[in-house]
Structure formats: C-alpha cells, structure tokens
C-alpha cells in the first residue's frame, strides 16, 4: 500500500507502508491494504505510518481530510491547527488598519524620500554628463585652449 501525506505547502511523506493510522474526526481509524474507498475529515492529532521496514513514523497534523483507496492513502493535512481566534483577530487588525489609513491618509514612506533623493542624484549625474558631452571636443590642439594660451 502506498501513502502520501501532503500539506498545502509541501509533500511531507511519500512511500510504501504496511498500515496507516488516521485521527478521524469521528475517532481514530487504522487503515490496512484493501480498505474500501473512503473520504473522511481529520481532526487535530497524529498520523502514524508503518513502513514495511523500520519503525513507525509519526506526523502531527492540525486537521484536514483524507482519501482512502484500496492501494493508496492520501492525507491532505493542515500543517498547523487552524486557530480561528488568531485568524479572526488578525483579520480584525487588518480592517482597523485600513480604516485608519482611509481616514488619516497613508503614512509617508521614509524609503520613498530616499528613492526620490537617489533618483534626483542620478538625474543630476546624467545632466552633468550630457552637458559635458555636448561641449566642443576637448582634446587640446597645439594652439591650446584659452586657458593654456595665457
């Protein structure tokens, strides 16, 4: 039997196994080869896989869901417990920030000043160079320039 454990971010485990134990929302379930096809939600807990050789491996998951087929188990796990309170709090903060900026206007960006200054400097250099290029050729002839004559 084959088992994949993937999170939204990456593949965590993939390989041949003898058995898989899942933290189902309605109780822990052990999956052996030739299990009937099943879709189930998972709760916070441990996925335990038993490779043909070696020790069991444990993966803590924050919930999710899994697809079981006779020869394959795919666990779509949450990499961390989805803590609703934290998300809601952060979402509220994002709203409050937006309200504040909508009323007070956006803060001046210190980086912006640095950028403007840098671009002014660049422009100045370009102007200087262009001005110098436009002048007459400066290779002194034998007669010399005004300066040299004196």
């Amino acid at each position: 039997m084959y088992c994949d454990i993937v999170t939204q971010e990456k593949m965590v485990f993939s390989g041949e196994v003898k058995s898989v134990s899942l933290p189902g929302t309605e109780g822990r379930m052990g999956i052996l080869p030739n299990h009937s096809a099943l879709l189930t939600t998972l709760g916070f807990g441990e996925v335990i896989v038993h490779p043909p050789e070696g020790d069991e491996q444990y993966f803590a998951i924050g919930g999710g869901f899994a697809e079981v087929q006779p020869e394959k188990v795919i666990v779509l796990a949450d990499s961390a417990e989805q803590a609703d309170e934290i998300d809601i709090e952060r979402a509220e903060q994002a709203r409050t920030r937006a309200e504040k900026y909508m009323v007070e206007g956006v803060p001046e960006d210190p980086e912006r000043y640095a950028q403007i200054r840098a671009s002014l400097q660049r422009a100045q250099i370009r102007i200087d160079v262009a001005r110098r290029r436009r002048r007459k050729p400066m290779m002194p002839t034998l007669g010399g320039t005004e300066e040299a004559k004196n």
């Binding site: 309605e26 009937s36 879709l39 939600t41 869901f65």
Partner: peptide, 18 residues
C-alpha cells in the same frame, strides 16, 4: 464511489475553504 465520513456536504465545508 466512496463512503463518506461525515456526509459529503460536511466534507465540503472542510475542503472548499482549504
């Protein structure tokens, strides 16, 4: 064909937001 635990609508509540 799968057996569903819980029923498909409740599974969707988990799958769609993710």
């Amino acid at each position: 064909v799968y057996s569903y635990e819980p029923e498909p609508a409740a599974l969707l509540d988990v799958v769609v937001p993710r």
